[in-house]
Lab assay of single mutants.
Amino acid sequence: SDEELKKRIEELVRRGNKDEARKLAENANSDEARKWWEKLEQL
């Protein structure tokens, strides 16, 4: 689900694993996940 995906992306970003988070968001084929990633990346 998008919610689970967003949690995983956020967790990866928090751990400093941005590349992994980006790949996850891009491969998810989910606009919501991509937007979430872009938002987190700004922080």
Score class of each variant (00 low, 15 high):
17 N>S: 10
39 K>P: 03
8 R>N: 05
29 N>C: 11
40 L>Q: 04
10 E>G: 07
27 N>H: 08
42 Q>F: 09
12 L>V: 03
13 V>Q: 03
12 L>T: 04
16 G>Y: 00
14 R>W: 00
32 E>C: 08
9 I>L: 10
25 A>K: 01
23 K>C: 14
7 K>W: 03
20 E>Y: 01
25 A>C: 14
43 L>K: 07
37 W>N: 01
4 E>G: 08
24 L>W: 00
16 G>R: 01
40 L>R: 00
17 N>H: 14
41 E>G: 07
6 K>M: 14
41 E>L: 15
17 N>W: 01
27 N>Y: 06
30 S>E: 04
28 A>V: 08
7 K>E: 08
1 S>Y: 14
11 E>Y: 00
3 E>K: 10
10 E>C: 15
7 K>T: 08
7 K>I: 08
26 E>G: 03
27 N>W: 05
34 R>L: 15
4 E>F: 07
29 N>L: 14
21 A>R: 01
9 I>R: 00
20 E>Q: 10
12 L>W: 00
43 L>N: 08
17 N>F: 08
24 L>Y: 00
13 V>S: 02
35 K>Y: 04
41 E>F: 07
13 V>T: 02
20 E>K: 05
28 A>E: 06
35 K>W: 04
36 W>S: 04
39 K>D: 14
27 N>S: 14
24 L>Q: 04
8 R>H: 08
14 R>C: 08
23 K>L: 12
15 R>L: 14
33 A>Q: 05
18 K>R: 14
29 N>T: 11
28 A>L: 15
42 Q>Y: 06
26 E>H: 04
35 K>R: 13
29 N>H: 10
40 L>W: 07
43 L>W: 08
38 E>P: 04
11 E>S: 06
19 D>R: 06
34 R>I: 15
29 N>S: 12
29 N>Y: 08
39 K>V: 13
41 E>I: 15
43 L>V: 09
33 A>C: 11
33 A>W: 13
17 N>K: 14
20 E>N: 03
38 E>K: 00
12 L>Y: 00
42 Q>H: 09
6 K>V: 10
27 N>V: 09
15 R>P: 02
39 K>L: 14
11 E>D: 13
43 L>Q: 11
32 E>I: 09
31 D>A: 11
10 E>R: 05
34 R>T: 11
22 R>K: 12
30 S>Y: 06
25 A>I: 15
10 E>H: 09
36 W>P: 01
40 L>T: 04
7 K>D: 07
30 S>P: 03
28 A>N: 05
42 Q>P: 05
38 E>V: 00
22 R>V: 05
15 R>G: 13
41 E>C: 11
36 W>N: 05
35 K>A: 13
39 K>R: 09
2 D>S: 11
5 L>W: 12
32 E>V: 09
39 K>Q: 14
2 D>G: 08
18 K>F: 15
1 S>L: 15
34 R>H: 10
26 E>D: 08
37 W>L: 15
30 S>T: 12
13 V>Y: 13
18 K>Q: 09
31 D>V: 09
41 E>D: 11
7 K>N: 09
36 W>I: 12
38 E>R: 00
40 L>G: 01
2 D>T: 13
33 A>N: 08
19 D>H: 07
16 G>F: 00
29 N>Q: 12
25 A>H: 02
31 D>T: 08
34 R>W: 13
16 G>S: 03
5 L>P: 01
16 G>E: 03
29 N>E: 12
12 L>I: 04
36 W>D: 06
38 E>S: 00
15 R>E: 12
12 L>Q: 05
37 W>K: 01
21 A>F: 02
1 S>H: 12
2 D>W: 15
21 A>G: 03
14 R>M: 09
15 R>C: 15
18 K>D: 07
9 I>G: 01
13 V>G: 02
11 E>K: 00
7 K>G: 06
28 A>I: 15
30 S>C: 08
41 E>Y: 04
37 W>H: 02
5 L>H: 03
28 A>P: 03
31 D>W: 00
14 R>N: 10
15 R>S: 14
1 S>A: 11
26 E>C: 06
10 E>Q: 06
30 S>A: 05
43 L>E: 13
38 E>L: 00
21 A>Y: 00
30 S>G: 07
20 E>F: 03
1 S>M: 15
40 L>D: 02
4 E>Y: 07
42 Q>A: 12
4 E>H: 09
8 R>T: 10
15 R>H: 12
27 N>E: 14
36 W>A: 05
31 D>N: 06
30 S>W: 09
24 L>K: 03
13 V>I: 14
28 A>K: 03
42 Q>V: 10
41 E>M: 15
